[in-house]
Nucleic acid binder design. Structure first.
Lengths: 349, 349
DNA sequence: TCCTTTATGCTCAGCTTGAGTATAAAGAGC
DNA sequence: GCTCTTTATACTCAAGCTGAGCATAAAGGA
């Protein structure tokens, strides 16, 4: 009767150590290796994957509890801050497994953990997330990969479109999304950038998915507006298993948005910190450098932190005062709803 | 082996007509009627429900396409703007159906449609969403239900807590969430408000769920910190089936947030409109009155609209110019990322 | 013509933001 | 000790945005 269904629970578990944002990955056998003419990850037989576990429909009372449960089992990490991200349900998300049978719907979560911790069972490791998205780190300089590879490749892709109107739309999209030709870089558009590269065929996942899909359904023709130049398609960024890089891009974009209006960064910091440490973590997430004095002004005036009176002598220069997060703001935050033009409080209009 | 799983697709379909925000509901037989001593909706044998359809794991290539498909079938509405909201997966979301068997995970979507439209099959109707959340409409005045019913009821609930510390925390939460005792009203906290009322036992769904749950699992004791005074528990707002009011609250909160930073309101308006019409729609969604001149300044300076040169003579006073949405802003929006203190564009820090 | 109603333009003070300048406090080298 | 380097932190200033209101314009009706 009904096709069997599996609910997968994926976690993008984020930590920041030494100014490097990291994501917890596990090794997953590369099923595509069995096929001929297949792109293979550098490591050979394994691909990076986000920690994954199926929902136990009988035992897990809640999706989130299910997630916490097997993350604990699998990595020894007790998750703190957890937030549901998105539910991925496209068919052929997972063209490899379950070929005959079950369809996998994945509910993805974002989790923030405080510092890197040791973990137990599975073959897990922390990886710099900019390894997967080298074009996202603008802290030191505009990433060279953009001008060296992305822009030319995408230009080719745009040029390959037959209709002039299509070409214009594609060009516009490329410019907006990657901040080219005068458009500003918007650090939140992580997912849009990844999806554009995927569509254009410049990430390894695209080629892999196409190959697997045609193998599974030999009759199906997929028509993408402009098709990538088949000559030397670059493979940008480190690939992941299945659609996990898409999930990670979603997580990254969401997190970059969220730190701007909710005090979630503190989940990543130890209980006391200097303002520069705080700033560095925000910068690591946002992939952008910030103005120090203004940052400190904002944070202090926002009542987000309070002084401890203690100092960190390890700064190299004048010792920095240690601060702690003021949990009270969670309750105070009276008007996080900035944005409505002139919300009338007095109701006498 | 595995408990059977069903993926449900729920849609909160929103339209605004004559300054009333409406939600598309269908009638659903009230399964709890079969039980003794049950709270019943005013209509008797039926409860309002959000349109719902199961995912066809074999046929639907995408969750969103599945949703669009059966919304078309069921109501004749062709959805335009659709956005995934949240995935609800708690066990006992649906204590009525599937008692022996399947667990239902619901992926909820928010959809915006342009004006009210006619529809085809099922018994569907548009309802003022403030019927479900009478405390959310602050346009004319602070809703009287807050001081008349909510505040006293919640005060009782707080007082019922045994621990002083618990009492303090609950009081704080009540104040923040409902804007009492000096806290400001935050129109985005729709879900928090509903959940607080649910926890405290002042919405009909709580009593119903509790009854059904204890009936299904007679042994289970649920312990909520303070339990509601069993005397005369009010039933605030019109109830819905299952957890649909929770889903609706999620939709409302999300929409109220989104209109502030993405031009989605225009999905609800016809192609040309006066600025006051635009403002009224925003106000209907936000549940708050806005300052007219400042609203128009913001909208115009933001480049969101352009004049048509035509005028609407139906205003009652001086005719208002008709505007249209400038689709280009979708491409322009160069820096929607307001919020990072001093993002350094020049990268020379 | 006057009044009412809505539309629209303009002002003004207070606050926030972006970008600096200036000063303080530590350690290292002499 | 003094000087240099390094980082921390305080303070300034102009530009722009926000909240609130005043003023004028253009219609219809008494």
């Amino acid at each position: 009767m009904t096709t069997p269904l599996v609910i997968g629970l994926n976690a993008a578990i984020v930590a920041v150590t030494q100014e490097v944002p990291r994501i917890l990955t596990v090794k997953r056998p590369d099923h595509s290796l069995a096929l001929p003419g297949e792109m293979v990850s550098e490591d050979g037989a394994f691909l990076d994957a986000l920690p994954f576990g199926p929902l136990d429909a009988r035992a897990d009372p809640t999706l989130e509890l299910g997630l916490r449960g097997w993350v604990r089992e699998q990595t020894g990490i007790e998750l703190g801050y957890v937030e549901q991200l998105y539910t991925f349900g496209d068919r052929n998300r997972d063209p490899e497994e379950h070929e005959g049978g079950a369809r996998v719907i994945s509910v993805a979560y974002l989790a923030l953990v405080r510092e890197r911790q040791l973990f137990g069972a599975a073959e897990a490791s922390w990886r710099d997330w900019y390894g997967y998205f080298p074009w996202e780190d603008w802290r030191l300089t505009r990433p060279s990969i953009i001008d060296r590879e992305i822009a030319p490749s995408l230009a080719q892709w745009v040029a390959a479109a037959s209709q002039p109107a299509t070409r214009r739309r594609c060009q516009e999209r490329v410019d907006i999304v990657f901040g080219l030709n005068g458009a500003a870089w918007d650090e939140e558009r992580v997912l849009e950038r990844y999806e554009l590269l995927y569509e254009a065929g410049f990430v390894a996942e695209k080629a892999r998915d196409r190959m697997l899909r045609t193998k599974l359904q030999p009759g199906s023709q997929n028509r993408h507006s402009p098709s990538p130049s088949q000559t030397e398609t670059p493979s940008l960024g480190r690939p992941m298993a299945l659609d996990h890089r898409r999930i990670l891009a979603t997580a990254l974009g969401r997190l970059r948005g969220k730190i701007k209006y909710r005090p979630v960064v503190f989940e990543l910091l130890s209980s006391t910190f200097t303002l520069l440490q705080l700033q560095r973590v925000v910068e690591a997430l946002a992939g952008v450098r910030l103005h120090k004095q203004n940052f400190r002004r904002l944070v202090e005036k926002g009542g987000l932190v309070e002084r401890t009176g203690q100092f960190d002598p390890e700064t190299g220069g004048r010792p920095a005062e240690l601060f702690r997060f003021r949990r009270e703001v969670l309750r105070e935050r009276l008007a996080p709803g900035v944005g409505l033009p002139g919300a009338i409080r007095s109701l006498e209009s």
